[in-house]
Design a protein around this nucleic acid. Sequence first.
DNA 1: CGATTTTTTGAATCATATCAACGTACGTGG
DNA 2: CCACGTACGTTGATATGATTCAAAAAATCG
Lengths: 193, 193
Amino acid sequence: MYEVFFQKFNQRTPLTEDEENFIKQYLIPKKLRKRQYLLQEGDVCKSIALIEKGSMRTYLVDPAGQEHITAFALEGWTIGDLPSFQSELPSIQNIEALEDCELVLVSKSAHDELLKTMPKYEIYIRLLITDAYMALQKRTLNMISLSLDDRYKAFIDTYPNIAQRVPQHMIASYMGLSPETLSRIRSRMNNSK
Amino acid sequence: MYEVFFQKFNQRTPLTEDEENFIKQYLIPKKLRKRQYLLQEGDVCKSIALIEKGSMRTYLVDPAGQEHITAFALEGWTIGDLPSFQSELPSIQNIEALEDCELVLVSKSAHDELLKTMPKYEIYIRLLITDAYMALQKRTLNMISLSLDDRYKAFIDTYPNIAQRVPQHMIASYMGLSPETLSRIRSRMNNSK
DNA sequence: CGATTTTTTGAATCATATCAACGTACGTGG
DNA sequence: CCACGTACGTTGATATGATTCAAAAAATCG
């Protein structure tokens, strides 16, 4: 239990066994079936979740009623709506299981408590956000500088597993283009190699 | 001296006078003339900089020789190339003064030392990156979900000062579109209101 | 003031969105 | 377990809108 959580934690901030046990008190395991929600628009994001198994997506519905996927997450990734989690205000995003999932939750109160009492947790969170920030910077750069074909290649290189596990139209939504266009990009790529 | 630096710091993490003085030992003031560089491609980013006065841009040159602006920064903002700063490997980005600037530098060694010795500095950095991450998420969302006209409006709303202080073609580069297109967006907007 | 850079405008081209139709795969209930 | 209905992915035709190239107008700098 919590294998992936502590593997990821130790990767950034090595822990003693005692420290692991200390943290374990604060963790809550949770299973989610495909299509179930971790968070729904209008609710406050009360936990961040590490994915032990499965995959999820974060999306939001714009005023015109269209869905936009802002993030995917697989095993070992941490997911949550940061603006809502930080501010304790209602979220505008939804977080949904794309496959059956096993999660490890850290509630807001547990998170605040751990930040206060355990310097290593603070370090871990800082490194986690730093990595997430750098990944997002790369994504932003790709969006402003690459052709669609190259953006799709970059997506595949960065997340080779995702493409096989989530429907294409969701990848199109994540990239901000129509499903038809993504289909044509793929057929162009297959023909040229 | 360091007014803006400590104003921003206190905003996130209130400090006593002693704590301010402790941190001051580690700070280095630096002035940069317009068009001078804080960081050039190929160099390691050895400091992060808070801008007391002036404005800067971060950009990178792609294989085809085209510049892409990834960030602007004004008074009170912190700038640096995080991947290079963290890893101490050469940066692929350039950071240039757009106006005469007064900066406050925190070197990598000072940063590491402060992280080790001063919990409040660790908290400050975590909150700083968290804010930057949330801002970047919003930018990403705008890119995948809004029309160009609305993206420009969102840009103006978010950074009302920048539009008057940096050349339009740089804003176009930041938005990932051609200068001509931005010019046409602006004339459309003026005609319709 | 003259030179250079920046912004605007126009016309042609290219890329993506949209709309529509079709084939296929999938899950769901009978 | 099969048959049906719904989702999904592909393909084609057309429309929209952004880029590119070229040139002129406007603004900025020395």
